[in-house]
Design a protein around this nucleic acid. Structure first.
Lengths: 335, 335
DNA sequence: CTGAAAGCGCTAACAG
DNA sequence: CTGTTAGCGCTTTCAG
């Protein structure tokens, strides 16, 4: 910038003004402006946005913290949000917390304090919003996506997990199933996972069944694959074999399919199956698996739009309701 | 920082020194150091790394540009690289270029110029390395992953696509297949895609077959799903029906499976199938699909280690060979 | 119409 | 042992 000012014999101020489109506003002659712009292009001048951010406090960086970027649900989320952010002139920094609460908080700090992100979308694995409270109190834009925390309703955009799970379970029961097992993640404080369980239980009761603890299995997050496989095996060999399984997320569902195949059990003849969160694998299985599809694209769009509104102060977080999107049951041939 | 210096009646320099662990080096009394550290913690002081970067030129940010973060291959790559980077004290900024060369270059500029990334790993969709040349000439650390560009051999870490495709094709031929079709992406300048095609052709010739253009179909990137579906349909209804299909990537493979199912064709009875780049869907299909597994984790590890070496100057890019990793044929039941 | 000057928060010579 | 000083690259009053 200095060099371009020098070559043109003007001050750095002028160059800055012109390059930021404030030339007219400050009444700088068209000719001068033209010259500045041309030389800048010729020299391939790239403003150092670090310096700019330091000065202005604006970074045009947005942050997204997901729990596992390798999960298709979150990678699609990242893709969608990145697309929109880019179109709006923001860069998106995507980070993966790997289901580690401490890392999640560190990532948030880094994004906020170090990178000067102007807003952050987070799919939080925390138990409560306490670490986010100071930021929110200072009106720093934070939007919670997919997983709700107590007390952040107005800042959340989520899927109606309860309703989705209820629909799925009802579908199973309406197909004549009497012993619907639930394989879920636990013990879990995640709103998404809990709501799915509540939906499952509600459907059971609504249809006149009892909630049977023997038919509910919790696999731990850290050992999801093995726990799930063990659970399926145990269930299928128990005295009280289920005639249907409701898998609470895509990873669980995948393992259920594989384990069932390994055990020589046929879907849906031996046992029916519905999975929460549709992934492509469920389409190409045979039989293709009925699943609860989550509208990730919509979810993502709502989240970033909300964030942008907060950044532009056209939305005061706390006043609006939680945005809740409806999932859709995609009926295939596993029931 | 000013406030903590003031409260303790010392200079900002001293605070900076202590907080950066240079207290001993500058012979600052233990007591003073202790006081500084405690107060910093009490005030929850967070250094502004923007300012630090501006001053030192070090950002501890690394960049990763992938062509599509929603593709499992790349999201797993992102996860692995992020993990390692984090452990080494670096943050990773992941960006998705969406197969758009212009966006890729912009992303690179942004990462380098604006965020001051200390090194960048890129899975490039460009035809040549020209836009990267100025950076590389200045010894800016850049590592090319998965896709090779002419002239960047020493800075690349790739899969042996040629060999993987050759093995797959040979496997098909050894299983008695006479008319092996290739469904690939094109026209493409991507080294990965081209090498797969070359491997396919080499295997054919090695086994005494001719390369038959009617058995090679190129689907365009922008319209991959539809083109692939159309290609499969056309092939299966042609006069020269293939008895095996080699799908050049995971997305193509997925559509082949679905289309075949829609056409009522059975794998492997009507037509055998091998896909390049294994994804979980191929495991749970029925029959499970034989695939060429790419060692993404290894690939990612090599790439970031190379980058780190370049950053620490313990590796002069140009002298080392291209790191080439061998893919593995996972035999399932689709052949 | 244009430029001087101050300062964002931090670090690193260089003097004491 | 500690503080002064200068400045990273940019923006923005404010006074010509």
């Amino acid at each position: 910038m200095a060099s371009i000012a020098q070559q043109l014999g003007v001050s750095r101020t002028l160059v800055s003004l012109v390059l930021n489109g404030k030339g007219d506003q400050f009444g700088i002659s068209k000719a001068t402006q033209q010259a500045v712009i041309e030389l800048a292009q010729k020299l391939d001048y790239q403003p150092n946005s670090l310096a700019r951010t330091l000065r202005t406090g604006k970074s045009t960086i947005l942050g997204l913290i997901v729990s596992d970027i390798a999960n298709p649900f979150y990678s699609r989320m990242a893709r969608t949000i990145e697309d929109i952010a880019w179109k709006e002139g923001y860069k998106l920094m995507v980070c993966s917390a790997d289901e580690d609460p401490a890392k999640e908080v560190q990532l948030f700090q880094m994004l906020r304090q170090s990178l000067n992100a102007e807003g952050i979308i987070v799919s939080s694995g925390l138990m409560d919003a306490q670490p986010y409270q100071p930021s929110m109190d200072k009106d720093f834009p934070v939007v919670f996506i997919d997983r709700m925390l107590p007390g952040v309703e107005g800042r959340s955009v989520i899927i109606d997990n309860y309703r989705g799970a209820e629909r799925a379970t009802e579908h199973l029961i309406e197909a004549g199933k009497k012993r619907v097992a639930l394989i879920t993640i636990g013990p879990s404080h995640l709103s998404s996972i809990n709501d799915r369980r509540k939906g499952y239980e509600a459907a059971l009761i609504k249809k006149g069944f009892q909630v049977n603890p023997e038919l509910i299995v919790e696999a731990s997050f850290d050992n999801l694959e093995k726990d799930t496989a063990a659970a399926v095996t145990k269930l299928m060999k128990s005295d009280y074999v289920p005639d249907a399984i409701f898998a609470a997320n895509n990873r669980v569902g995948l393992v259920v399919i594989e384990t069932l195949a390994a055990l020589g059990k046929k879907i849906p003849k031996d046992v029916a199956l519905i999975c929460f969160d549709d992934i492509e694998a469920f389409r190409v299985c045979s039989p293709p698996v009925t699943a609860v599809e989550q509208p990730v694209e919509d979810l993502s769009r709502h989240a970033i739009e909300k964030l942008l509104k907060m950044i532009n102060k056209t939305d005061s977080a706390t006043e609006s309701d939680a945005g809740t999107l409806s999932p859709r049951l995609i009926v295939r041939q596993s029931v």
